[in-house]
Computed example of a mutant assay.
Amino acid sequence: MTELHLWLRHEVRSTERRTPLVPSDARRLVEAGATLTVEASPQRIFPIEQYEAAGCAVAPAGSWVAEAPREAVVVGLKELPDEPGALTHRHVYFGHAYKQQPGAPELLRRFAAGGGALLDLEYLVDDQGRRLAAFGYWAGYLGAALAVLQHRGRLTAPLTPTSQQELEEVLRPVAGDEEFTALVVGALGRSGRGARVALRAAGLDPTCWDLDETRNLDRPALLAHDLLVNCVLATSPVPPFVREEDLDDPARRLRTLSDVTCDVGSPLNVLPVYDRVTEWTEPVRRLHKEPPLDLIAIDNLPSLLPEESSTGFSGSLLPLLLEFGTGGPWGRCLERFRQACRELGIEEGEARRV
């Protein structure tokens, strides 16, 4: 591999337990010739000692700002801290900045100001546009699992990280549980597959919709289900699945809505009936009193199964990091960043030297 310095940063979000790179895969990168610096992080599911044993250098949390060499590639998952105002490095993480989300223009201008670049993991795709590294399966799994627990009155807060085995033990139906219907929209994708697995672990046989069923949406049929798990991430405008006027519909049976996608704030949001996500401390929000409708919309669901989800994601990301460069998937990432900058009137030359 060409000379590569990766800098695995600490996550500023207190509920983020995941990592994009687990120690065993870090070892493979070091053995392949990469330099890997890992910031200490008390919340990361894997302790820093495992990275040290894998041959990584260790740095204090947040030190990338002042200490990471300019050529280093800073790797993370969720949002960056608000400072510095000018971002000089290439950053690999989920930026959520290309679909007019709140704060997106300000983030992209921070990169332009420092000559850095966003290599957004959501846009790390093959030449057919398929995602190459994703947490979707576990997001769908957890979105469905939490919805079932809420619908059965067994969801407790605050949420805490667990394991798949422990979660499935509480998902199993018990005597006295009422039967109900569940619908997964986007059932054929990664998230939809995870949602279906969780619902079946809970003893349910969900209705499964995908493109064919949503192309000409049967909204009354959708609202006739008791529980809905949305796994659709729209890339072009589509009619919303649930509208404000649907909340007042007395015929609505839908009582629990789990939005795995959490595309809140985007004009492409297929569930424009809420304006902010829910949190681990308060995972459920009542959207409507009568007939009742409860919402779960947590935007880092896989962090509730941090070891399983990190291991799967890291395994997908590793071969891409081993081939890191300006072509292929990484080149497509960079071009998508430059396109977003051009849409804001930022000159390409400002948007990095890569």
Results as ranks from 00 to 15, higher is better:
T2R: 14
L4F: 06
H5C: 07
L6R: 13
V12Y: 01
S14L: 02
P20Y: 02
V22R: 06
V22D: 09
D25V: 03
R27G: 07
R28I: 04
R28N: 06
T35A: 04
A40I: 02
P42W: 00
Q43A: 03
P47V: 00
A57M: 06
A59C: 08
A61K: 12
A61C: 06
G62H: 07
G62V: 07
S63V: 04
V73Q: 12
G76E: 06
K78D: 10
E83G: 13
P84R: 06
T88N: 04
H91E: 12
H96Y: 13
H96W: 09
K99A: 08
A104H: 08
L108W: 06
R109G: 11
R110I: 10
A112Q: 11
G115C: 10
G115V: 10
L119W: 15
L132A: 03
A134T: 13
G136T: 10
Y137E: 14
W138G: 04
W138K: 09
A147T: 12
L149M: 08
Q150E: 15
H151W: 07
R152C: 09
G153P: 11
R154F: 00
T156L: 15
A157N: 13
P161R: 00
Q164D: 04
E168R: 11
E168A: 12
E169T: 13
T181N: 04
L183T: 12
V184I: 15
V184E: 11
V185W: 02
G186S: 11
G189E: 10
S191E: 12
L199C: 12
A202V: 08
G203P: 01
G203E: 01
G203T: 01
L204D: 01
D212S: 14
L217W: 03
P220A: 01
L222T: 03
H225P: 03
V229R: 09
N230G: 08
V232M: 12
S236M: 09
F241H: 05
F241I: 15
D248M: 00
R253T: 02
L254Y: 11
S258M: 11
D259T: 10
G265C: 05
P267V: 06
L268G: 13
L268D: 14
L268V: 13
N269I: 04
Y274F: 14
R276H: 07
T278V: 08
E282P: 04
P283Q: 12
R285C: 08
R286W: 05
L287N: 13
H288T: 04
K289D: 11
P291D: 02
P291E: 02
A297E: 10
I298Q: 02
N300A: 04
N300Y: 03
L301M: 09
P302C: 04
P302T: 07
L304W: 03
L305R: 04
P306F: 01
S309R: 07
T311R: 15
G312T: 11
S314C: 05
L318Q: 06
L318A: 08
P319Q: 10
L320T: 12
G327Y: 00
G327T: 14
P329T: 12
C333E: 10
L334G: 01
Q339W: 08
C341D: 09
R342N: 11
E343P: 06
E343T: 01
L344Q: 10
I346E: 12
E347A: 10
E347F: 00
R352D: 13
R353P: 04
